[in-house]
Amino acid sequence: MTLSPRQTRFALIAGGVLVLAAAAAFVLNAFQNNLVFFFTPTQVLNGEAPTNKIFRIGGLVKVGSVQRNGTDVSFVVTDTAQDIAVRYSGLLPDLFTEGKGVVAQGRLDAQGLLTASEVLAKHDENYMPPEAQHALDKAAQARAAQSVKP
């Protein structure tokens, strides 16, 4: 089979566009299925978080809430307004400490317990994960709004 230069160019362009379209469809599909949304503990207790999908929560590790049993750990994440209990199996990051910021990613069960597959703390002692900070700010805003009401 011999193709004229024109046909060759057409075949190359058509092939390229097809490959690109297939790749784009595939990428966007994977993207859609792997977005992890973020919720504050208040939002979770309001039922805004999905029950069948992985999501993230952020806030402070409640003081006195960390319990270790072997390599299983349970603790409470709070945005100072609401609390969410978290269970995690594995070693925690170096900077995971009570009273400091934390972000946990996992799935919520029917009892409202979050089974975390990943726990992130900050990298620097003076630095707060933006998501944890966001949760605290929102809770503070909500409180301020309430206190204004008569």
């Binding site: 595939f26 792997n34 949304f37």
Partner: peptide, 18 residues
Amino acid sequence: LGKLSVGPPYFNLVFAPL
């Protein structure tokens, strides 16, 4: 519009087939 993250599963899923 909210806070979300795109985790390693997405990148692994997309990167390897390419």
